[in-house]
Write a protein that binds this DNA or RNA. Sequence first.
DNA 1: ACTCATTTTCAAAGCGCTTTGGATAACGAC
DNA 2: GTCGTTATCCAAAGCGCTTTGAAAATGAGT
Lengths: 343, 343
Amino acid sequence: MNLKQLSQILGLSQTTVSRALNGYPEVSEATRMRVQAAAAKHGYRPNSRAKGLATGKAMVIGHVIPSSSQHEMVNPIFGDFVAGAARKYAEHGYDMMFTHADDISIEEAYRTLFKRGAVDGVVLQGPKVVEPRISVLAKMNVPFIVHGRSTGAGEPYSWIDVNNKRSFLRATQFLIDLGHRRIALINGLEEMDFAQRRREGYLEALQMAGLAPDPELMRSAEMTEIYGHHETRNMLQLADPPTAILAASMISAIGVRRALDEAGLKMGRDVSVIAHDDELSYLKNGQDVPIFTATRSSVRHAGEIAAEMLIDRINTPEDPPKTRLLEAELVLGSSTGPTPDRS
Amino acid sequence: MNLKQLSQILGLSQTTVSRALNGYPEVSEATRMRVQAAAAKHGYRPNSRAKGLATGKAMVIGHVIPSSSQHEMVNPIFGDFVAGAARKYAEHGYDMMFTHADDISIEEAYRTLFKRGAVDGVVLQGPKVVEPRISVLAKMNVPFIVHGRSTGAGEPYSWIDVNNKRSFLRATQFLIDLGHRRIALINGLEEMDFAQRRREGYLEALQMAGLAPDPELMRSAEMTEIYGHHETRNMLQLADPPTAILAASMISAIGVRRALDEAGLKMGRDVSVIAHDDELSYLKNGQDVPIFTATRSSVRHAGEIAAEMLIDRINTPEDPPKTRLLEAELVLGSSTGPTPDRS
DNA sequence: ACTCATTTTCAAAGCGCTTTGGATAACGAC
DNA sequence: GTCGTTATCCAAAGCGCTTTGAAAATGAGT
């Protein structure tokens, strides 16, 4: 069932039917009703490609999945972020397109997406400190939004991010206030921009308290359970082990907890742990009392905001880039407590 | 840069340029070279929508994200499955499209996707025991593949699945062989088809060993850490608690472990645990020695196969539906051991 | 009854590509 | 020199929609 057939059934021109369906005023209410009824009856849906060709808009937003060939790693926040964004896309009539690209060809993938007219805008996820993708998109002068920021970017761009620095600063201060002096940071990969900002917050808090940072207590790893476990076990064997640990994600924090258990240490009593909690739907941090004391910020919510900001940007491309900084909550759970006495 | 412009630059017709680029034989090698060089030089990419309109193929595969409004839950396997599928789509020149839909309107979402000509085929994830989506798609006579199966389906359909029944049967037998008699099952939601099959395997193993199933030891919950923890803690308080637990996912198994730790029980010694491991990239089950004894099957691999099966189906729609049953490995980790003596 | 303004409808062009059905050129063979 | 073949290339139609510019229908005013 296409426009032509529908208009023939109705005895109207394609023009009129199209206008009736798209809410243009040049059509009487009576015929509009008649057209809508017929469209519903025959289950007519305008062909997206034809519509896109005619209007010049794809009504599609693109995401590129970077498949790190080295560490075949899918970001665990991917699903929830996407679910949030998809919901807003749907509300505004947009579809969501994913393209796979090798590490090497990611910039090319973005470029192709636009040249093919496949998308009206793209979301850039997981920006690194030095992020060539941003300048590629900026130079192409196409609508895009970054989830996160990139310190090394030369030009302005739209982004939405969590205040990673402040949240880790606050978390570190909280541990210091509890009496901790040996505070470890199990960070994400340091090439990621968010990891660098978190470290800055951590270091600043130490400095404000007059504590010297110890390189032995600053680990950087992929945010898996295994690495959280590995780094923690490693640090517990130090001559002067940490009494508190900041973990970059709930998943690595779970690895931290496992290492503590194995060492016969009780989390919250012997060693305090604070995790960053993205509020992943399958990894809720407890019901009433959170398991982990955590810096909390919903990544699904970030996805929703990113979607709306991007659509806004598509609609008003001449406006200057907008930015949005979300503050993470610091929620108190049972994984933190005062420094244990070591007599 | 479009075809028209490119052909004008080259002093050729659109026909010839199009054919040169698409590898048709009616064009001399010399001009083909010339055309390809010019296309590369100007960065020409054919417009996807125009191409789709002309060919009648979208070169897009659709996935519908069901956003359970009740339990706002994104399936944790989503990311890895999609990453696997996306890779194969890209290899075959397909894009991947996601559409969001409410629980209620999911069937309508699939229908619309095809009517709009937005996709050439769809992947149906997370089938339930009774799955109306399958009959909707079958009746529409469109290419689709199911990741999982649906017991209640009346018509044949293409699917790829893990042999859930056999893998849980084997896991249960393994525990029985170790001397366990009180074996609990912390399953996924029972309306899900995979959960039902796992339970069947579990029950069959009990029956073969002459053990009576105890409803108290069969729990069904969303596969989150919290629920794994909750159900385990609950069962440990029974008069005759389980000595072994089968968990439907690594994530719920982590919750199980937490409950055991809290109860002062050592996993693998006091209580044995077997988890189902989808080999999620951020939840690897140990490096050398797996943490959990597990039934293991890569969901990313399943995504790759699903993609290829679907593309195959799109290309040969008249062929009967194909199916593929993957066997899970049973990998031995440190979470299982003989029944503890209870004197 | 006639004009003018307004409302309602329509025919046709155009979006960027593929593809059908020729047309033209080149090349031997006779 | 003519004919048939083959190798190249092209003009134009068509995919399903939107949108421009014009025409038909309606209604009000005189």
